[in-house]
């Protein structure tokens, strides 16, 4: 295999692992807890920007890019900072939007938030360098490892795989736990969950923040890989790509959404690069967004539970006093 092909394949693997992390976070919010978060990509973006500014070093006069709070934190602090920043933003947004609004109004708030966030990042040029975004973000441990670029890329793919496995195990632990069952109960019948004493608002807030932290970490790892991040990378339609992956794979099924990620953001969007150009240059790329929308509609219409629907929970009945064997 040529070096170029290895670079390409390892890039796709890195994108796949990072997207899986992101989609697992959204699945936790949307699939498991029923929170419609159309601003999910904003939290990815916040994680990416945070990791960038705490890696780039302090800004200085004459720099070709300008940003606030520049620092040179060592690995892995920028990634953790990305997660924390996204988590804090989730907390603020969650406190404002999840307490009093019903799910459809929450969705509208999230969509508006997504638009506002992009506009702020683009127009407040001193914040994170406006529309040009941030570049030359250092890759973690690149100098210390002393590897050539291809070797480093495979190591980075391994690092992303490791993080993805961690996120998967963490998300699976939540979905299998009593908390996961409570979240599903809340998703399926909010009033019933409230009636049995569950604090629905708190539960939503918790899972909204957890999903936000995962989004932030995925954004941080992504920005450190491509070494650049700009508003064009996190426009609001990107959330719908993640959402399509959840719906296609199967909401609330962690293995399903991994398949959805393989099929939609990586497979579907990448495979079309190999199609020969038709009509005019850019036609296929322009149609991708139409196709993502159609994919969501088709799945909602014909297979609303996705390729791998959520498995109904089977729980052993708790042993009662009568059935307990005599001691």
């Amino acid at each position: 295999m040529t070096d170029a092909m290895q670079f390409y394949i390892s890039t796709l693997l890195i994108y796949l692992f990072i997207d899986i992390m992101g989609v697992l976070g959204l699945n936790l919010q949307f699939g498991v807890a029923g929170i419609i978060n159309f601003a999910y990509i904003v939290f990815v973006g916040v994680g990416a920007y945070t990791a960038a500014v705490v890696s780039l070093g302090p800004d200085y006069p004459g720099n070709f890019q300008h940003y606030m709070f520049g620092a040179s934190w060592p690995f892995p602090l920028p990634i953790l900072a990305g997660g924390v920043a996204a988590g804090l933003l989730s907390l603020v947004v969650g406190v404002i939007s999840l307490r009093r609004l019903r799910s459809d109004y929450q969705a509208m708030v999230m969509l508006v938030l997504s638009l506002i966030a992009t506009l702020v990042a683009s127009n407040a040029t001193g914040l994170v360098n406006g529309p040009a975004g941030l570049a030359t973000i250092p890759q973690p441990l690149y100098d210390q490892l002393g590897l050539n670029p291809l070797e480093y890329q495979w190591v980075y793919a391994g690092w992303c795989l490791f993080l993805t496995v961690l996120v998967f195990l963490f998300v699976r632990a939540i979905t299998r736990s009593p908390l996961g069952r409570t979240l599903r109960a809340m998703r399926d019948n909010e009033r019933a969950a409230s009636a049995v004493g569950k604090n629905v608002t708190l539960l939503r807030l918790v899972i909204f923040v957890v999903g936000g932290v995962i989004a932030g970490i995925s954004g941080a790892v992504f920005a450190e890989f491509i070494q650049a991040w700009s508003p064009g990378s996190w426009l609001y339609p990107e959330t719908f790509v993640f959402l399509a992956a959840v719906l296609v794979g199967g909401a609330a099924n962690n293995w399903g959404v991994i398949l959805g990620t393989l099929l939609v953001p990586v497979g579907f969007l990448e495979a079309t690069r190999f199609l020969p150009p038709i009509f005019y240059q850019g036609f296929i790329e322009a149609m991708q967004w139409v196709c993502v929308g159609l994919l969501i509609l088709l799945f909602l219409w014909f297979r609303p539970n996705g390729i791998f629907p959520e498995k109904p929970g089977r729980f052993k009945p708790r042993a009662t006093a009568q059935s307990r064997p005599a001691e």
Partner: peptide, 16 residues
């Protein structure tokens, strides 16, 4: 026109 899309586009162009 976006770094996140351009990186795999460049890799794919070079590789294939």
């Amino acid at each position: 026109g976006d770094p996140a899309d351009a990186v795999p586009a460049a890799q794919k162009m070079i590789a294939s």
